[in-house]
Simulated scan of single mutants.
Amino acid sequence: MTAMDETLAPLDQQQTVEITTIGRRSGQPRRIETWRYRAAGRYWLTGSPGSRDWYANVLADPAFTIHLKDQDLRVRGRPVTDPDERARIFGEIVPALTWAGTLESWIAGSPLVEIRPA
């Protein structure tokens, strides 16, 4: 197991998580509930197509906290904008979501952030 795997392994315990980002305009902590996903052997945050404040906050300041039931993880987000990488990752995530809509809509309009150790 690599150091990254060990650091992020607690994410395997739950899919629904809360995250705290720093507001890009306010500078204040912003906490929301979201889902984390596992694809290509890594961990991701995404959501159905549309703009998301949490994503804009991560673009402005990639450091954030993931709150799990028994611990908080300080992490960094890596926004994924490369179309080929987005297609590969969403190709693993979206087909398992019965409510998701089309893969194409997610590739075109959903935020995608890789979760990395801080």
Rank of each mutant, 00 (worst) to 15 (best):
E18L: 02
R36K: 15
P117G: 08
E92D: 03
E85I: 12
I22Q: 02
S110G: 06
S51L: 10
I107V: 11
E33D: 12
D12G: 11
L45D: 05
R42H: 13
V113S: 12
D70A: 14
D72E: 13
V17K: 00
W54S: 03
S110M: 06
T102P: 00
E33F: 15
I66K: 04
D70I: 08
T20R: 02
G109Q: 02
I89H: 00
T102N: 01
G77E: 07
A96H: 03
M1H: 07
R42G: 05
L59K: 05
I32D: 10
L59F: 13
S51T: 14
T98E: 02
I19Y: 04
G91F: 07
D12T: 15
Y55T: 11
R76H: 14
E104Q: 10
R25A: 09
W106S: 04
R52N: 11
I22W: 03
D82C: 11
I115P: 01
A96M: 09
S48C: 12
L73N: 10
S26A: 07
T21M: 06
E6S: 05
T81E: 04
Y37W: 14
R30D: 08
I93H: 05
E18N: 09
L45R: 01
V17G: 01
P49G: 10
T7I: 08
E92L: 04
I93P: 01
F90G: 00
R116D: 05
R24S: 00
L11G: 09
S51N: 08
T16C: 07
T21S: 01
V58L: 11
R52Y: 15
V80Q: 10
P83W: 13
L45P: 01
Q28S: 13
S105L: 15
V113G: 10
I66T: 05
L8S: 05
H67K: 14
W54T: 03
W54Y: 09
A118Y: 14
I32Y: 10
A60N: 10
R25Y: 02
E6C: 04
I107P: 00
V17F: 02
Q14F: 11
I107R: 03
T81A: 04
E33S: 12
V94Q: 00
Q14C: 08
A118R: 08
I89D: 01
E85S: 10
I115Q: 04
T2Q: 07
A100H: 00
W99P: 02
E114M: 06
T20K: 01
D70F: 13
F90A: 00
P49I: 12
M1A: 15
R78G: 09
R36E: 09
I32N: 11
T81G: 06
D70E: 13
N57P: 13
T46F: 04
G77C: 14
R24H: 02
A40P: 09
D5W: 07
E114G: 08
